[in-house]
C-alpha cells in the first residue's frame, strides 16, 4: 500500500474542511468496502478522514412519521434497533441480511450509500421508500441521489450525516443472495404508502433503479396477482460469473411478487 495519512476529525465541520483541503483524501466510515479496495490497489488515497469519532452521526431516532438513522450507524445497530424493528421491520430485515455478522458490526449505512455498490442492499430501501439523504449542507431525495455505477449526487467534500426514512403502510425487501458474498444478485424493495407504490431493484443494473411498469400494476392493486404476465427486458442489466442479464431480468418480477406477498403477510 502507498503511504497514507490518517485524520480523525472531532466535528463534522472539521471533517468537511479536511475533505475540502485535500481532494485526494477519502472519507472512512466502517471501512468494509474501502479497506478491501485499498488492499487490492483499486484506490490510493492520500489520506483517510475517519468519521468514527463523530458521535453526532450515530443513532436511530423516531420523529413523527419518519425514522432518522445516523450515517455512522452500523448495520447491526439498525438491524437490532427496537424502533426500526417496530416501525420499519423491512429495513431491520434488510440490515440483518447484509454480508455477515462481523461485517454488520463494522459496516455503516452512510458508507454503503456513499459507495453505491451496484449489488448493495441499502440503496434498495432508500430508493424503495423514497427516503431523503441529509448531508452537511443539504437534503438529497433518493430519486436524484443514485447516479450510476459507484456514482452519487454527493460533492467531493460532502458528508452524509443521516438518512430520513418515511414510514410506509407496507413494505418488504426480498433478495436473491449470491451465496458466498450475500450481496444481492437481485434484490427488490417494495413499499405502499397511501396510493403510492415504489419498487426499487438493486443488484441487477449499474445501480439501484425503480420499475415504473411494476409500480403502476401494483398501484392498480397491491397483490402478487397484479404482476401476472409482466416480464422485464434484459437490456442494460448486469451479466457476470453469477448470473446472466436474462436471469436477472427473470428474477425481478419473481422477487417483486414475493416481496408484495411478504409486505401483505
Amino acid at each position: 500500500m502507498p503511504s497514507l495519512s490518517y485524520h480523525r476529525p472531532s466535528s463534522i465541520t472539521e471533517a468537511v474542511q479536511m475533505a475540502h483541503d485535500d481532494p485526494d483524501a477519502k472519507l472512512l466510515a466502517g471501512g468494509q468496502s474501502i479497506i478491501p479496495s485499498l488492499k487490492l490497489g483499486l484506490l490510493a488515497p492520500s489520506a483517510f478522514i475517519d468519521l468514527g469519532g463523530l458521535a453526532d452521526l450515530r443513532g436511530v431516532r423516531l420523529a413523527g412519521r419518519s425514522l432518522r438513522i445516523g450515517a455512522m450507524s452500523s448495520h447491526a445497530e439498525v438491524a437490532n434497533s427496537a424502533d426500526v424493528r417496530k416501525h420499519l421491520p423491512a429495513l431491520a430485515h434488510l440490515a440483518s441480511g447484509i454480508g455477515d455478522r462481523q461485517v454488520r458490526n463494522r459496516g455503516t449505512i452512510g458508507g454503503s450509500l456513499a459507495n453505491n455498490d451496484p449489488a448493495a442492499d441499502y440503496p434498495g430501501a432508500v430508493l424503495g421508500l423514497g427516503a431523503e439523504l441529509r448531508t452537511d449542507r443539504r437534503a438529497i431525495p433518493a430519486d436524484s441521489f443514485f447516479q450510476g455505477l459507484f456514482a452519487t449526487a454527493l460533492g467531493p467534500d460532502e458528508i452524509i450525516t443521516a438518512v430520513e426514512f418515511p414510514l410506509p403502510e407496507r413494505a418488504a425487501y426480498v433478495k436473491f443472495p449470491q451465496p458466498a458474498s450475500r450481496f444481492a444478485l437481485v434484490g427488490v424493495f417494495v413499499s405502499l404508502t397511501g396510493k403510492s407504490v415504489r419498487v426499487a431493484v438493486t443488484g441487477a443494473g449499474a445501480c439501484v433503479f425503480r420499475v415504473p411498469e411494476l409500480e403502476q400494476a401494483l398501484a392498480r392493486g397491491f397483490s402478487p396477482e397484479s404482476l401476472a404476465g409482466i416480464t422485464m427486458p434484459a437490456d442494460a442489466l448486469n451479466t457476470d460469473l453469477h448470473g446472466s442479464a436474462e436471469y436477472r431480468a427473470h428474477l425481478i418480477p419473481v422477487l417483486t411478487r414475493r416481496a408484495v406477498a411478504q409486505a401483505l403477510a
Binding site: Y6, R8, L28, G31, Q32, I35, P36, K39, F48, D50, G52, A76, D100, R101, Q102, V103, N105, R106, A180, S181
Partner: peptide
Amino acid sequence: CDTASCGACTVLLDGLAVKSCNVLVAQVQ
C-alpha cells in the same frame, strides 16, 4: 483469505466480532 471472507482473523472489538484483516489499527484507538 485477507479479503474479509473467511473469518479466520475474527477478534472481539469492544465485545463485538469483527474481521481484523478488514479493520485498521488507527480505527480502534
